[in-house]
Amino acid sequence: MSWHDPGRRRRAYGAVAVTALFGSPLLLLLAGSLREPGQPPVVAPPLIPEDPGFAAYHQAITHGDLVRAAANSMIVAAVGVPLSLLVASLAGFALTQLPRRLASAVIGLSVLAMMVPATALLLPRFVLFRTLHLTDTLVPLIAPALIATSPLYPLIYYLAFRAIPADSYDLCRLADLTPMQTWRRMALPQVQPVTAGLAALTFALTWSNLLDPLVYLYDRATFTLPLALRALAAMDPHNQPVFLAGAVLTTLPTLLVIGVAQRRFMHSYGPEGAP
């Protein structure tokens, strides 16, 4: 690997530069949120606030009613994310066992479903949920769990389950396990890193969903966090520290979940390292 060695130091510098570049937006967001709220706008304020404090956070939480919104978001995530993973893993597993022709048809439909723009589906879904009197409830926000949040995720499970050696499936067949038992006892434990990764992605998508609440929710009591944050930013668009503080608060849970999940799925390929 002779051409690798002189690059070692360069790569370390590169890693530092990448960290700085991709970390800076979030650091600037944090710095902006620590400034004193309600000050008149100044040209080129210092990047690091002179008198950092949490006043903006206090205002964001009280003016934006963020506690109630966070509770709503948590209900949606607590029901929707496990349900979504269940749907995805059951479907992905069934696809590996069902006849090939049926499986390819479902996979084809899933790819087609990924092509359809989300905004194009809003109208008929809106009519559907309004007819069922489910607007202004959290049900329409949980409903996408039925398509596993993204039709991509059953396909990822399908690939993961297919990668399990055929011997394992044969053993289960010999033990006369039903497909359901095979899924729960043998297959699911083997794809834990996939589940961890998809759990994080599903949570991130569910937590950040703005489009659906925007269309289905009008009653402030049902607002989820992104919608409440939008209302907060619209209320006083020039009071930047306040909505930046709201943005930080909205971001924290996702970072936490990804951080926890990352230990499981990043390390599944980390130690093998490079050739």
């Binding site: 937006p25 979030l26 966090l225 992104p226 930046l244 709201g246 943005a247 930080v248 971001t251």
Partner: peptide
């Protein structure tokens, strides 16, 4: 990882 709306406000 930043939720879309928070990312927009940022």
């Amino acid at each position: 990882a930043v939720p879309e709306l928070a990312y927009g406000l940022m």
